[in-house]
């Protein structure tokens, strides 16, 4: 590893009684890049994020954010000056107006950019004199995003940032994310919106039932993942197609759909050797990968991954 990770998890675990929310996470987040954190509801994304921010104590393991251990409560306070966070709920103080929450938040951060604050107020069309209570969900999300962006933090952690935003708002948010990243901010965000992730993420991590099931640069995913459709004229044992890199095999009569993490050429070669009458490989989108990973591996009966 030639880069210094902005976030590094070492066997990070959180359990509530017998139920494990996050299990032995090991992960390193690259600096100055956008990393997406995917997973179905309840996969452990928010729990992981909250552990990184010191809101939840880990049951085991440790994590370092900007070089500081999350177990160090004293350093955690100063660490939060360099991190901006937008929570899943986007809830702010209902009793404040937009102007009041800006006045309240600004003094906590010496690097607050008032020029950017004005720019974002215009872009997001936020009414300064309106109470947060009276704002729509989208406007509340925009307010939370403004409070995070205007700080120019070293690390931006966003939990479902597009939740409640209309398409224009999503576009504005994504553009801002890319801009912040190009200006030196590391972005770590969780999302269910695969299309957004594909557009802006440099790296993708995926959690499933509290465990990391994917950690890869986006380019590598695009290059290496393939879906291989194979047709046979005769019945064939699907286990014959099991080999390193095969993630999933679905069978429909004499047709097989094989999801391949790597070595697609070898899989196609094996199919040809077994007398396949048709072999076709196509790139796999992140959505398909997500569904495969989140749904867990599904193999034809009697087969196990290679």
């Amino acid at each position: 590893m030639t880069w210094e990770p902005v976030i590094q998890l070492h066997n990070l675990t959180k359990a509530y009684g017998q139920a494990a929310a996050v299990t032995g996470l090991n992960l390193a987040i690259r600096p100055n890049q956008v990393t997406a954190f995917l997973g179905v509801n309840g996969a452990g994304k928010t729990t992981t994020i909250k552990m990184l921010l010191g809101m939840i104590q880990p049951s085991n393991g440790d994590a370092f954010v900007l070089g500081t251990s999350i177990r160090n409560a004293k350093d955690s306070v100063s660490l939060r000056r360099d991190i901006a966070y937008v929570s899943e709920s986007k809830q702010l103080y209902d009793y404040m107006t937009v102007g009041q929450i800006l006045r309240f938040t600004r003094p906590f951060y010496s690097d607050w950019d008032t020029g950017l604050e004005k720019e974002l107020l215009d872009t997001f069309e936020l009414p300064l004199d309106h109470r947060i209570k009276s704002l729509s969900k989208g406007m509340r999300t925009k307010t939370a995003l403004l409070l995070a962006f205007a700080r120019r933090p070293k690390l931006l952690v966003l939990d479902e940032p597009s939740d409640g935003l209309d398409p224009i708002g999503i576009e504005q948010m994504l553009q801002r994310l890319v801009t912040q990243c190009s200006e030196g901010t590391t972005v770590f965000f969780s999302s269910h919106q695969i299309a957004e992730v594909e557009r802006v993420a440099d790296n993708v991590c995926m959690l499933h039932r509290g465990s990391l099931v994917l950690d890869s640069p986006m380019d590598q995913l695009r290059e290496s993942y393939r879906q291989v459709d194979v047709g046979f004229s005769h019945p064939i044992d699907p286990s014959a197609m099991l080999m390193p890199g095969v993630e999933n095999i679905r069978c429909d009569g004499r047709q097989m759909r094989i999801t391949v993490r790597e070595n697609a050429d070898l899989v196609m070669g094996r199919a040809n050797d077994l007398g396949a009458i048709s072999v076709e490989a196509a790139p796999v989108g992140l959505r398909e990968i997500f569904l495969e990973k989140a749904g867990g591996p599904k193999y034809c009966s009697g087969t196990k991954p290679g």
């Binding site: 010191g54 306070v77 939060r80 929570s87 702010l92 951060y109």
Partner: peptide, 14 residues
């Protein structure tokens, strides 16, 4: 309960 504790706890104060 109202959902705003995440914002409060993300502020750089103990």
């Amino acid at each position: 309960a109202g959902g705003s504790s995440s914002f409060t706890l993300s502020l750089p104060v103990s």
